[in-house]
Structure formats: structure tokens, C-alpha cells
């Protein structure tokens, strides 16, 4: 494959994507409408989905037990499409703080949170969080005390981790919807904690 002339208004890789998609549509692998629907579906996958799962786990002990035992099955039981990957939910507690990474590439629980933030895909995050997690957490303003064990979980192509963050104190009277609003993407990655309102 050769690069086209410099005056091309399309970047080489943009042209590659358009050409490949057009060929696959010609060959009947999928339709242009399938592609549009997929783009729309991905746009709808946001951390709000994961936040709702976390809030349900905080307020429904039976669901929480099922979520920790088999994340994929528990999420599918509440109607979430989990795609081809398995989900493993890890609970942060008084004694354990969990954080996730993908050292080999950028695997992320995207069915529950959408596409990962750029820093999650960065060389620096991937390299360091497994070796000096407390230093990296500190850059995010998170400093677990020395007696808390920090566990780093490395995602793979087929298996994705989601952090079940600790429910903040003084949120006892809050509804599931109110709780979900407190849960951020970064808290489900584990680089931040969930703050009380």
C-alpha cells in the first residue's frame, strides 16, 4: 500500500477506514445503517450506566453479592448488554483500594463506561500504575492510608474489571438515583474515591 499525494484532503488512515467499511458493506458483512446504529449505541454508553450499577450494589445486598460473584450475569440480569467480554467487579473497602489499568493496550469496561479517557490509554499511566500505584493515585489527589492495601487489576482483551468504590459515609438517607449521581468514571477506575455530597 502506498501513501497518496500530499494534497489529499483525507488522511491516509481516514481513507483506509472509509475504504474498508465500503468494501465490507459491498460484501454484505453489515450495512451503512448498521454502522450508524453502532456509532449511536456507543455514544449512549457513558459512565452513567456503571454509576447506576454501583448505586444498585450499594442499596441492594442481594444484587451486590451477585455482582461480585459474576459481574457479567448480574449486569445482564438488569438488562445491560455486556458484549463479548466478561466483567469482574472488585470491591474497595476499608482495607482494600482497587484500581484498574490495561498495561498491554487499552481494555476498559466500555459497556458500562463508554470509551476510556485518553490518560488511561497513555504510556505513562500504563507503565507506572502497576509499579508505583500510590504515586499515580496521588497525582489524581487520592491518598489511601498506609494500612490500606492497594490492588491493581490488569484488564485483558476478554476480561474487564470494574471497581465498586466505597459508599461514602453520611449518605444513608439517599435514594439510589441520588447515589448514582455521586459515582464518577474515575471512581470506577479507582483513581479517585466517591466523595460525599
Amino acid at each position: 500500500m502506498t501513501m497518496r499525494s500530499e494534497d489529499s484532503v483525507l488522511d491516509h488512515y481516514q481513507a483506509m477506514e472509509l475504504a474498508v467499511s465500503a468494501l465490507l458493506i459491498d460484501k454484505g458483512y453489515f450495512s451503512a445503517a448498521d454502522m450508524e446504529a453502532e456509532i449511536d449505541a456507543m455514544a449512549k454508553r457513558t459512565p452513567d450506566i456503571g454509576a447506576a450499577v454501583v448505586a444498585q450494589a450499594w442499596t441492594d445486598p442481594d444484587f451486590k453479592a451477585r455482582l461480585l460473584a459474576d459481574g457479567t450475569a448480574a449486569c445482564e440480569s438488569i438488562g445491560l448488554d455486556m458484549g463479548p467480554t466478561r466483567l469482574m467487579v472488585v470491591e474497595s473497602t476499608e482495607t482494600v483500594h482497587n484500581v484498574i489499568v490495561c498495561t498491554l493496550c487499552s481494555c476498559f469496561p466500555r459497556m458500562l463506561m463508554g470509551i476510556p479517557p485518553d490518560w488511561y490509554k497513555s504510556v505513562n499511566y500504563r507503565s507506572r500504575v502497576v509499579r508505583e500505584p500510590r504515586m499515580v493515585l496521588k497525582e489524581f489527589g487520592t491518598e489511601p492510608s498506609a494500612d490500606v492495601e492497594v490492588r491493581v487489576h490488569d484488564n485483558t482483551a476478554d476480561m474487564r474489571y470494574l471497581v465498586l468504590p466505597r459508599r461514602p459515609a453520611s449518605t444513608d438517607g439517599m435514594s439510589r438515583e441520588e447515589l448514582a449521581k455521586l459515582v464518577t468514571r474515575d471512581s470506577m477506575i479507582g483513581v479517585k474515591i466517591v466523595e460525599a455530597p
Binding site: 465490507l24 498495561t103 498491554l104 470509551i115 505513562n124 500504563r126 507503565s127 489524581f140
Partner: peptide
């Protein structure tokens, strides 16, 4: 690509753009 544990600098948390053509690659 095997980056776990290597020396590296601070995590740059700025910038998050996702142009249309990238969404098409993702959808593909």
C-alpha cells in the same frame, strides 16, 4: 506494547477528543 512497570513520567490528564472518523473505526 508491554508497558507494565516501565519508567515513565507523570500522567497527563488533559485533552480528550474523539473525532468522527475515530468513532467510525470504533464502530467498525
Amino acid at each position: 506494547h508491554d508497558m507494565g512497570g516501565r519508567d515513565a513520567g507523570p500522567v497527563d490528564r488533559g485533552g480528550h477528543s474523539h473525532p468522527e472518523w475515530e468513532k467510525r473505526v470504533d464502530a467498525l
